[in-house]
Nucleic acid binder design. Structure first.
Lengths: 224, 224
DNA sequence: AGATCTTACAATGTATACAAAATACAGGAG
DNA sequence: CTCCTGTATTTTGTATACATTGTAAGATCT
């Protein structure tokens, strides 16, 4: 386990939330690896808090599907199998389709403007070559759509599903070869939303997810 | 708040799980009403445990969307607005469509047999007039489909969404007028799955959810 | 009267102490 | 040498004590 785990935000937040965010970050960044045990005492010592907030943070991580605990055995970082990823992506595909349909109905001029901005920023980001910036821009683009869908529960779910694949997605976005295709897909989605063409936007969104799925499957296979 | 809250299972389970199940039941049955505060000391006294397992159970309830906590203020039973219910049902509709599509591809003879059995049991249950049995049979019918979809995460999500509407759904199932329509819809879904007619099964599933949605909307309006 | 400050109380947040279970390991019997 | 078993250690589970914060009632001042 990494030893650079450290609490950041001194904000006025319950420690359980601070611990939760810290561990979440660490898992998503890969500092805490899948299958690695999350031992309360160890984490508590490392983060300089007591076991109580650690335990509560772990319960919250379970919630997000980032950790799994076995009673009287402890918690560990959730593993992601290829099957598991397919399952998540199936769900994400269905919900992304829903989101774009809703956005198609509800997105206003303001929302479209933000979406266009996010799209441009994504294009700029790919040209800069900074992977982190690319990832953030991608998140922003999709968030703009989710926001327009005006369904907070849907937004939460989608962000959650995204998180569960984060580690793999970063690899995806590292591959500069995919940028062209991604930009084109984003443009298509944007265009369809602007034109309120619901059928086409659903297809576009679906393809977008399926492409990611295929890429990631290949990646996982290569890993082995 | 009800005062018949009591711990059942003396099983070999962490108390947090026992408390979690107890509170969950109480919320779903309506013994703990939406908006009611979940005070740790009070619950701890009532259930005869310390605050620790209570707090962890509350974190788990948050996870299921059954409770909401405001830092330094405490937790309360989640409220469900009409908009919230629409949001949940939109999601459920999309995921139910996904589930039947997957089931359509993957359901084997064994699965079909179980589904037919569940369908029959539902019909019997409606004739018996026992609402609880009707509810259970309905759950069993849909679970048979979810199981065939072979996507555990999807199944978890759908069960979760179902829970969030449980209180309203019970009212739905109390209304004997809806039985005929429900039976017909179940039959149609079963038939389409048997015939592997993916397009029609999606439509049938979608209608099934939409009908529920309309019924519940009316009910909520009547309540006011 | 109205506003603001004090103060007391109640609830949550956090740390720690103790209990029980799981695990690892050493030693002995076969 | 292997397997079992008992013990020590580690880790989780639970209770409780203490700290902090939010809230509301009442006092004080203007």
């Amino acid at each position: 386990m990494t030893d650079k785990l450290e609490l950041n935000m001194n904000a006025y937040l319950p420690l359980r939330d601070v611990v939760f965010h810290t561990l979440r970050e660490a898992i998503l960044k890969g500092e805490l690896k899948p299958g690695e045990r999350l031992m309360e005492l160890q984490l508590a010592a490392k983060l300089g808090v007591s076991r109580t907030p650690i335990r509560e943070a772990i319960r919250m991580l379970e919630q997000e599907g980032l950790a799994v605990t076995i009673p009287r055995k402890g918690a560990e970082v959730a593993k992601m199998t290829e099957k598991g990823m397919e399952d998540v992506l199936q769900i994400r595909r269905a919900l992304d389709e829903l989101a774009v349909q809703l956005a198609c109905d509800k997105m206003d001029a303001e929302g479209l403007k933000e979406l266009r901005f996010a799209m441009k920023e994504f294009e700029d980001a790919t040209r800069s070559g900074e992977v982190k910036r690319v990832a953030q821009a991608d998140v922003a683009f999709h968030d703009a759509i989710y926001a327009a869908a005006d369904n907070p529960k849907l937004m939460t779910l989608l962000n959650n599903l995204r998180e569960q694949m984060y580690r793999y997605r970063v690899e995806y976005l590292k591959d500069a070869n995919s940028y062209e295709a991604l930009i084109a897909e984003h443009q298509k989605i944007f265009h369809c939303l602007k034109e309120r063409d619901k059928e086409r936007v659903v297809r576009a969104s679906s393809e977008h997810v399926v492409n990611q799925e295929n890429f990631m499957k290949n990646m996982i296979r290569e890993q082995e």
